[in-house]
Write a protein that binds this DNA or RNA. Structure first.
Lengths: 144, 144
DNA sequence: TAATTTTGCTTGCATATTGCAAGTGCAAAT
DNA sequence: ATTTGCACTTGCAATATGCAAGCAAAATTA
C-alpha cells in the first residue's frame, strides 16, 4: 500500500499496489458517490472499516496522489478529504466494476438507474460525472 | 476471498470480495494476455507469487466462477486453468486500469501499442479481445 | 524397469497485516 | 468548565502472507 514497493513493471501490478486491497476503492467510492469527505464519514460506511485501517489507507492514498487533505470550511476539527484529478480518473475503473457486478450479482434498486445510464453510453457518463466531480472537489464545500 | 463472506450489498464491495487483493487480477491478466494457463505458468510470473497463495487464489477464483479447471490435453499431470465468461467479462475493468496506469505511470514499451489501440476505441478493443478470448478458452489448446 | 524430473499442490513456521477495543489530543459545543 | 465530536494512535489477538520444504502422481530419462 505504501508508495515505495513495486513488485514488477507491469502497470496492473503498479496499480494494484496503489488501490488493490479490500478497502481503498471503497473509500474512493464514498468520495465519488457517497457524498462523504471526512474520516468519520468513511467510518460510517456499511462495510465497517476499522479505524487504524482507515487511517493507513487514507495515508497510502494520499502518498500515491489519489486523494488530498484540506481544511474543512465548517470546522478546524474536521479534515476534508478530496479526490485529486488522478483519483477522479479512477471513475472508469469503478464504473466497469459496477457494470461487471451488475451482470453477475444483485444490484441494489437505488443503483440500477445509474448503472443503466452508464451502460447506455459509457463515455458520456464518465465525462458527465467527471465534470461534476471536478467541480465538487474544487468548491470549498460547506457540509453535505 | 472465499465465496462466502459479504461485507455489504454494495456491488463494488462484492466485487472486491472476489478479486480485490494483490494477486487475483494478476492471475487473470496472465490468463488474458500472458498466454499462461497452468499453475507453474502463474508461478513464473514476474511478481513472484508464493505457492500457497497461488493455490488459495486459484481456489477462490474458481469458487467465484471466474476461472475453471480442466484437463490439460498435453498431460494428465497438468491442469489447464481457463477464464469463464464471467472472468472474460473482467476485461473492461483490467483495460481501464491499464489506461489509468498509462496516464500516471511508466508504460513498458511492449504494451504501449496495445493501450493506444484500446484507448482509440474501447468498445472495439473489448469486443475484439473478448472474441479472441472466447475462442482461446474454448479450444482444447495443445500448448502455447 | 528404475531413477529422476515435472506438476500441482500442502505443511510448518516466521513475519506482516488486519480487526477490535480502548485511549489520546485538540476543537467545538453546552 | 465539562462534555462531545473528530481524527487519529496504541495494544493486542486473530488472520493472512511469504518462504522453504515436502509430497504424491504423472511424465521423462537412463
Amino acid at each position: 500500500m505504501e508508495a515505495s514497493k513495486k513488485r514488477s513493471d507491469c502497470p496492473l501490478g503498479i496499480s494494484l499496489d496503489v488501490f488493490g486491497d479490500k478497502w481503498s476503492l471503497l473509500i474512493i467510492r464514498d468520495l465519488m458517490f457517497g457524498n462523504k469527505c471526512t474520516y468519520n464519514d468513511f467510518l460510517k460506511s456499511a462495510e465497517g472499516i476499522a479505524t487504524n485501517i482507515l487511517a493507513s489507507r487514507l495515508k497510502g492514498l494520499e502518498e500515491n496522489g489519489v486523494i488530498e487533505k484540506s481544511a474543512h470550511p465548517d470546522s478546524k476539527a474536521k479534515i476534508l478529504y478530496r479526490l485529486t484529478p488522478k483519483g477522479i480518473d479512477l471513475l472508469p475503473v469503478i464504473m466497469e466494476v459496477y457494470i461487471w457486478s451488475d451482470k453477475y450479482y444483485e444490484m441494489p434498486t437505488n443503483l440500477k438507474a445509474t448503472i443503466k445510464e452508464a451502460k447506455k453510453d459509457k463515455d458520456k457518463f464518465v465525462k458527465q460525472v467527471t465534470k461534476e466531480l471536478k467541480i465538487k472537489m474544487t468548491e470549498k464545500k460547506s457540509s453535505s
